[in-house]
């Protein structure tokens, strides 16, 4: 069995540094297994979030060799093992301890988004085509990796003005539900700060569920906001009606 070096951030909200740990590498091992090895044999208080270990719950997000990943889906044999494998916490969220960050902001943003509301008089018949269309957005596992890499959040920390890609995906999943009757355009424009996204597609690149966040969620939502608020005819119409 070969051995690798795991270089893990250890520390809390105030300070910290990386520490190297030797780990034996078994076939098919993932980075989360290596972290569990460290926890179980070397440092029992190493703080790591995880649940399903199968890429379905989105708990074990971290930055592995500089790339935001689910550690349960990052195989050790895909990483160069002649140098240490660096595992750092997500940068965009406040650190709590080691690899665990405070992601509670995401839950506060989610509260702003009104839930599904069926159109009056719906008969609950839906075509599979309509289900397939919206499926992509609803498979989001809330790993928050897209939030972590979005430069509006990561570099500019505009958490008060901007909801981030995860929540545009959520709004898309609701808005494109074939029976949903709500209009969330004003919310997107005013409260979720959709306009701040300048479609650099960083979010799409890191999505473990391969959701085309920018192309399929954000851009259509931007178009919706434009139609609603900036369409010249509608604007003229509004002016005439005094609204």
């Amino acid at each position: 069995m070969s051995e690798a070096t795991l270089r893990v951030f250890r520390g809390d909200s105030n300070s910290g540094q990386t520490v190297d740990y030797p780990v034996p590498v078994a076939p098919g091992m993932v980075v989360l297994d290596a972290l569990h090895y460290v926890q179980g044999h070397l440092v029992p208080d190493l703080a790591v979030r995880w649940n399903c270990k199968a890429g379905k719950c989105g708990s074990c997000s971290a930055e592995v060799n500089g790339r935001p990943r689910l550690t349960c889906k990052t195989r050790m044999d895909d990483l160069p093992q002649d140098q240490p494998i660096t595992v750092l916490p997500m940068k965009s969220f406040p650190r709590i301890k080691d690899l665990v960050t405070d992601v509670s902001w995401n839950y506060r943003v989610n509260r702003k988004i009104p839930a599904f509301e069926p159109r009056p008089g719906t008969n609950w018949k839906i075509s599979q085509l309509d289900v397939d269309r919206v499926q992509e957005f609803r498979k989001c596992i809330e790993c928050f990796l897209c939030q972590n890499v979005c430069h509006v959040l990561r570099e500019h920390d505009m958490k008060e003005q901007f909801a981030g890609p995860r929540f545009f995906v959520r709004v898309a999943g609701l808005d494109m539900h074939p029976l949903d009757g709500r209009n969330r355009a004003a919310l997107l424009k005013n409260e979720l700060g959709l306009g701040l996204c300048n479609i650099t597609k960083c979010c799409t690149e890191v999505c473990p569920e391969e959701i085309h966040i920018t192309d399929n969620a954000i851009i259509p939502l931007k178009e919706r906001v434009v139609d609603e608020f900036y369409d010249p005819l509608t604007m003229l119409f509004r002016k005439i009606r005094g609204k």
Partner: peptide, 20 residues
Amino acid sequence: VRELEQWGALFDRTETGDIL
């Protein structure tokens, strides 16, 4: 299940548009 659907869950469908 119907209640879940009314709260916004989307299931795969039959050809007639019902829950598969």
